[in-house]
Design a protein around this nucleic acid. Structure first.
Length: 933
DNA sequence: CTAATCACG
DNA sequence: GACGTACGTGATTAGC
């Protein structure tokens, strides 16, 4: 059929299909020889689905899949950096490129590419030809670069979202009609393709300008009329770059094709060609399905492994309902045996424990629940009390429970069996409970850690939230069993019948979450993160927490008393100064005295209408007013006393005489740990007075504490990631990095450096890590905002790589919705495209996350390796404080431990990463933490 | 229960 | 063109 009026051409963006398929599927390999075929499998499924979906009355008459030709295109001759920031294709994807071409031909669909041109140019040329011939065109792609082609019978179809894009759709995206899309793109540039555009102008501004002036040419001619000085100068000064950008984004409608539209006519697939190809790829399900549809015999596939290379269809949402009344209560050995047998057969089992406390070091085991098949779970009560109305509360065990010892004896072989995977939600908690009962749970998977690897930044990772979000199921609230507040009971007082429903459900949910997350780890490419940075860390943390650190109660108690005395004195002074009594601990009352009674200027109110009296405001007033200075002193003592010297004493475990913190592995989005109950990551150090708290953290008899901390790790990582030669060299040379920055910025030779200039450079260095702003730096350094902005401008001038790191990072976040650490950890940034005041916040967080997160990954790797490295030495790792590790070791072996631990920490990035900047570690030792640090 | 404040990296 | 801003945490207290 001659292409003309009434014809309908489909043009499929083949490269987009390939990358989509590659990223959507786990890295499958062909069973017989290990050839990577995941992307091919996905590609074939997509093509097959496309063919199935396009048989109706609106079916295309002509179709082609268009690919990018490997190597350079004519655009690289225009601009050598075009697409220069594209990472090379993943190793396991490269051999799949030719296979996708072969697949296209096997489906009997025209497969086209052209040396020196991109797929987009061929699509453009064919679209123009088809339109001129009076036919319709549908471009199946979501690539915005193709939007310039829409109109006159040409539409786009975003196959992922199943959304057609017409002229109005283009206006939605670009703010202009298709004819002017290239003008907007020329101005806005494109970080993905490395099209420079006009700095400072994005799509919104570009569309505004184009709509005002009518076209890019007109705009550039009349650029002098633009009111905003910055924008005007950019447009005038960057004219060449903008015109180059336009040539880069303009698609070529005249590519020299060696075929015509008529060659693209839709053809039926030939079973004799297609089936052998699919069989050779060993795609079992697809081969069968296609054979059925074509009415042909499916060729045999020799490999009979049930877990073949063929991916199953995407998991449908788990529709099985939750039925609490069907859960089993296991009351004796005969009841437990079949569950354990099934776990052995299956090779995995979800496990959850119920206890009397959230403090694992004090909690007693009350019951265990198991689940192997979704919807079928059991609860094994072992420590429920009978709840008789004994005046003192009965300690008698309730009827119908297995003796704890018997239950543990039966469970232990399964929990420790290397061939049975134990699945838990926050397994560190359960593992610690079992560890205290002499059971080492291994191997294990943890759905909380899986969720963290997959979804950090998107939501929390507690079971209730995950159940709600991923299964639309609200678990039984624990409060409904225990009550709240003062009248709350412990789990051992919960009637067994109620406990079964609650506890078994937890195991059921955990198993279902595991089934959901497991394949997602591969799809999201975070299996390595989960397996090397998350899962192995949990047992290490568990051991650190259980070991604890010795805290000397007497030291704390003495300090508390001293603080109390000083505070009483300050309190009296403050009443005197104010002329009346008041609550010093109330910011509202302090504010009222300062800004109303004393009539001072500069007071600000919080959004709730209260006077705000943060430390920096009081500090400004303190030079003139004793009142403000005394309040500051009082607050410092109050903080030290209440949070540290008093509260810490309550955390000393009576059995061990030590303090056992809990680390939350999924608490911080960036990969850092958080520490609670108590928080041992914010023990004072900056002030002289506060630092003395650390004297209460002591080594046991005959031992010493060691502190090893990374020097400037985040700045080093910034230098590496942003690739700043001057900073990298300074680290290699072991220079004072802040002094060196100062020298570079302010043109002061190192030997004439003053502390004040260095201080400013230091503040800027830290500011950069946080996503610097003029306002923030000005406040930090207490200088005028314009001056701070000047510093920042100069910094970016001297280290231009910093600016581009920030741009690349935020653009990546905007496009993908997440950023990554150097080790592949993903941190999602859902707010990055938000408007309003949240935008700047999200942007700075996105800039900071890869730096902070990479540093967090490094110390995690060190911690995971540390236990093996110090085996045989009388040493234990006790605490982690983000860039510091604290050890306790026999005094005579301290130097050996320092040497080994330092080696592990300094080489922690390798072999996954070869950093060009050295990581260095400072070490100290002493009887207490103050001395060691 | 939330806001304000302040301890740490 | 105005607005509001350093990044990441947890604990304590006041005051509703």
């Amino acid at each position: 059929m001659q292409f003309g009026k009434g014809c309908h051409l489909h043009l499929i963006d083949g490269s987009a299909f390939i990358f989509r398929a590659y990223h959507a599927l786990p890295p499958l390999t062909r069973k017989s020889d290990g050839l990577p075929v995941g992307a091919v499998a996905g590609f074939c499924n997509m093509i097959h689905k496309y063919v199935e979906a396009n048989t109706g009355p609106d079916a295309p008459t002509h179709v082609a899949v268009i690919f990018d030709h490997s190597g350079k295109s004519f655009r690289n001759d225009l601009y050598d950096k075009y697409k220069a920031n594209r990472p090379p294709a993943p190793e396991d994807l490269v051999p799949q490129f030719p296979l996708t071409r072969e697949a296209t031909r096997a489906f009997n669909i025209a497969c086209k590419e052209l040396k020196g041109y991109e797929a987009d140019d061929i699509i453009a040329t064919l679209s123009c030809q088809a339109r001129d011939a009076g036919g319709r065109v549908t471009i199946i792609s979501s690539d915005k670069d193709l939007m310039q082609l829409v109109g006159g019978g040409v539409e786009m179809l975003d196959a992922m979202k199943n959304k057609r894009i017409d002229r109005d759709g283009v206006v939605e995206k670009f703010g202009v009609y298709p004819e002017r899309v290239v003008d907007v793109q020329a101005l806005a540039g494109d970080s993905v393709d490395n099209v420079p555009g006009a700095p400072g102008i994005g799509i919104k501004t570009a569309a505004l300008l184009i709509n005002e002036f009518g076209s890019l040419e007109e705009l550039l001619e009349r650029a002098a009329e633009i009111k905003q000085p910055k924008r005007r100068e950019t447009l005038i000064g960057m004219r060449d770059q903008i015109e180059l950008s336009k040539r880069l984004v303009q698609l070529d409608c005249n590519t020299p094709l060696d075929f015509t539209l008529d060659d693209l006519e839709v053809r039926e697939p030939d079973p004799e060609v297609l089936l052998p190809f699919l069989a050779a790829m060993e795609f079992r399900t697809l081969t069968k399905r296609v054979a059925e549809q074509l009415g042909a015999e499916a060729p045999a596939i020799t490999d009979t492994d049930p877990r073949g290379a063929e991916p199953e269809a995407a998991d449908a949402p788990d529709a099985m309902p939750f039925k609490p009344e069907t859960y089993t209560c296991v009351r004796d050995a005969a009841g437990l045996a079949p569950w354990l047998e099934r776990a052995r057969e299956r090779g995995y089992v979800a496990v959850d424990t119920e206890t009397t406390s959230l403090d694992e070091m004090r909690a007693d085991l009350v019951g265990i629940s198991l689940c192997i098949d979704a919807g079928q779970a059991c609860y094994i009560p072992v420590g429920h009390k009978d709840g008789s109305d004994d005046l003192f509360g009965s300690d008698n065990l309730a009827e119908g429970q297995m003796p704890l010892d018997q239950a543990l004896e039966m469970l232990k072989p399964v929990l420790e069996d290397a061939s049975i995977l134990k699945i838990g939600q926050n397994m560190k908690y359960d593992a610690k409970i079992f560890a205290r009962l002499g059971i080492t749970v291994a191997p294990f998977d943890d759905t909380m850690l899986m969720s963290y690897a997959l979804n950090a930044g998107l939501h929390g990772h507690g079971m209730d939230a995950l159940s709600e979000r991923y299964m639309s199921h609200t678990p039984i609230p624990i409060k409904s069993l225990l009550g709240t507040g003062k009248s709350a009971i412990t789990f051992d007082r919960v009637p067994i019948d109620d406990a079964v429903k609650y506890a078994a459900e937890d195991a059921d949910i955990t198993l279902r979450l595991w089934e959901l997350f497991k394949p997602q780890l591969h799809q999201a490419r975070v299996t390595t993160v989960y397996e090397t940075l998350e899962r192995p860390l949990a047992p290490v943390l568990a051991r650190m927490e259980m070991h604890g650190i010795k805290v000397d109660r007497d030291t704390l108690s003495r300090m508390s008393n001293a603080f109390a005395q000083k505070m009483a004195g300050l309190e009296a002074e403050l009443y005197e100064l104010a002329g009346h009594d008041f609550n010093v601990q109330s910011p509202a009352q302090v504010g009222a005295i300062l800004f109303e009674e004393m009539g001072l200027e500069g007071g600000k109110k919080t959004k709730t209408g209260q006077w705000s009296t943060p430390a920096d405001v009081l500090e400004d007033l303190a030079t003139e007013h004793d009142f403000a200075a005394r309040v500051l002193d009082y607050r410092q003592l109050q903080k030290l006393k209440s949070t540290y010297t008093d509260a810490l004493q309550d955390h000393i475990n009576p059995e061990t005489g030590r303090v056992h913190t809990s680390y939350i592995q999924t608490g911080a989005n960036t990969g850092r740990l958080a520490s609670t109950d108590p928080n041992l990551q914010n023990i004072p150090v900056r002030s002289e007075e506060g630092r003395r708290i650390r004297e209460a953290f002591v080594a046991d008899k005959g031992k010493v504490l060691l502190s090893l901390d990374y020097s400037q790790i985040e700045l080093r990582i910034l230098a590496e990631m942003a690739d700043i030669p001057a900073l990298k060299q300074a680290f290699k040379d072991g220079l004072d990095i802040h002094a060196m920055t100062a020298s570079e910025m302010f043109d002061v030779p190192l030997d004439q450096m003053t502390p004040d200039i260095r201080r400013r450079a230091k503040a800027i260095n830290f500011g950069v890590i946080y996503g610097i702003s003029g306002f923030g730096l000005a406040r930090n350094l207490r200088i005028p905002r314009a001056e701070a902005q000047g510093f920042i401008d100069r910094y970016f001038e001297r280290f231009p790589g910093i600016r581009s790191y920030m741009d690349v990072t935020t653009n990546f976040a905007k496009e993908h919705g997440y950023v990554q650490t150097m080790f592949g950890r993903k941190i999602h940034t859902p707010e990055i495209n938000a408007k309003g005041p949240g935008a700047g916040f999200a942007k700075r967080a996105a800039i900071n996350a890869p730096i902070q997160g990479t540093a967090a990954d490094v110390i995690r790797r060190a911690m995971i390796r540390m236990e093996d490295a110090i085996t045989g030495l009388p040493a234990k790792m006790l605490l982690q404080v983000h860039d510091e590790l604290l050890f306790e070791v026999d005094a005579d072996r301290a130097d050996d431990v320092i040497a080994r631990a330092r080696e592990v920490m300094e080489s922690a990035a390798a072999p996954a990463l070869h950093l060009s900047v050295p990581l260095t570690v400072d070490a100290g030792q002493g009887q207490n933490w103050a001395e060691a640090h």
